[in-house]
């Protein structure tokens, strides 16, 4: 991690906007493209100011075409550009999955590793925001399951800036999922100027000895609340995975070895979600360290419900605390 030392108090959305300004300033081959990213500055204002600062050729309002955005980004890479694509919402990225799976993740491989495709795809993700259907999905599994693609999900303003910067500088395609629930509700200290958080390193959000809550993105603050709620009962560690690929297995295994108890929290549907992968790694590599089963607290295997019901679907403080208590009592 390198930065200039000074800190600013920013929201998560402002931190992302800061990263984009810094990275576009730093590398003139970088451009931002997506629906409504230019004139409007993005529906969440994450790209605000870029068009004025860098011009319409480096902050491009594209046609409404997610596969076209990811597909033309592949061609832009071949012309030597470094595109940062915005998908307007998590579930609106699905038309782009075709390009992501068939080309973005494969093109380098089919050139025998001789051509780079430094595409960044960023999108707001996750629920709890009382929005219409298909505005609250957690699609990380689709992306992590795509070979050739890396995936990062920040949970703090500082990590949002640093991971987005790392993604933009990375020679490989990186998908960055941004917890939209916390775009404006979370503030934090963010290093000014260049700030990079390397991919592949988890963050211990809170140290503890009795049980580890493993999460990423918008579930990290929830797990911290759970740690507070359990204070006096148990010493809770919270591990923020933040880079799903490459994954910091060492940090996961170290925490499991330390506490012997692991609860994994994700808001995506349960089956084959990223929690399942983490649980499998613990089963393969940490079995003798564990004092109880690896538990999961997840969304359910149903479409994300209408928002009057979303609190029943999303992992809640009660469900996380309940899982931790069950594990502690095992």
């Amino acid at each position: 991690m390198f930065s200039e030392g000074r800190l600013a108090e920013l929201t998560l959305a402002e931190a992302l906007n800061d990263a984009l300004h810094v990275e576009l300033e730093r590398d003139e081959r970088t451009l931002v493209m997506g629906e409504d990213v230019g004139r409007a500055g993005g529906v969440f204002r994450v790209t605000a100011g870029l068009r004025d600062r860098f011009g319409p050729d480096r902050c491009v309002d594209t046609p409404l075409a997610e596969a076209g955005i990811m597909g033309t980004a592949v061609g832009l890479c071949m012309a030597g550009w470094r595109p940062v694509c915005e998908m307007q919402y998590d579930a609106f990225s699905y038309p782009g999955l075709d390009q992501l799976i068939t080309h973005v993740g494969r093109y380098r491989w089919r050139t025998g590793g001789r051509m780079e495709f430094p595409i960044t795809v960023r999108m707001p993700y996750g629920g709890g925001v009382k929005a219409p259907e298909l505005h609250e999905d957690s699609p990380e599994t689709y992306y992590v399951h795509t070979p050739g693609v890396k995936v990062a999900i920040p949970s703090t303003p500082a990590d949002a800036k640093g991971l987005l910067a790392a993604a933009i500088r990375d020679p490989d395609p990186v998908v960055v999922l941004e917890p939209k629930l916390h775009y404006r509700t979370m503030r934090g200290e963010v290093p000014e100027g260049e700030h990079v958080v390397p991919l592949g390193r988890a963050r211990v959000a809170r140290e503890g000895d009795d049980v580890t809550l493993v999460a990423y993105g918008s579930m990290v603050p929830l797990c911290e609340q759970a740690a507070d709620a359990l204070a006096g009962e148990a010493s809770v560690e919270v591990l923020d995975i933040r880079s799903l690929r490459p994954l910091d297995e060492d940090a996961l295994l170290a925490s499991a070895a330390k506490t012997g108890r692991v609860v994994i929290v994700q808001e995506a549907p349960r089956t084959l979600g990223f929690a399942a992968e983490l649980a499998a790694i613990l089963a393969e590599k940490a079995i003798l360290d564990l004092r109880g089963p690896v538990l999961r607290v997840t969304g359910y295997d149903v479409p994300f419900p209408f928002w009057k019901l979303e609190d029943y679907y999303l992992p809640s403080l009660e469900r996380v605390v309940d899982a931790a208590r069950r594990l502690l009592a095992f």
Binding site: D57, G75, A79
Partner: peptide, 18 residues
């Protein structure tokens, strides 16, 4: 896969134009 390279060609052409 069918037609999925058409956006690549469009992107390359656009990038060269830039």
């Amino acid at each position: 896969p069918i037609a999925t390279h058409v956006p690549h060609a469009a992107g390359l052409a656009w990038g060269k134009k830039l």
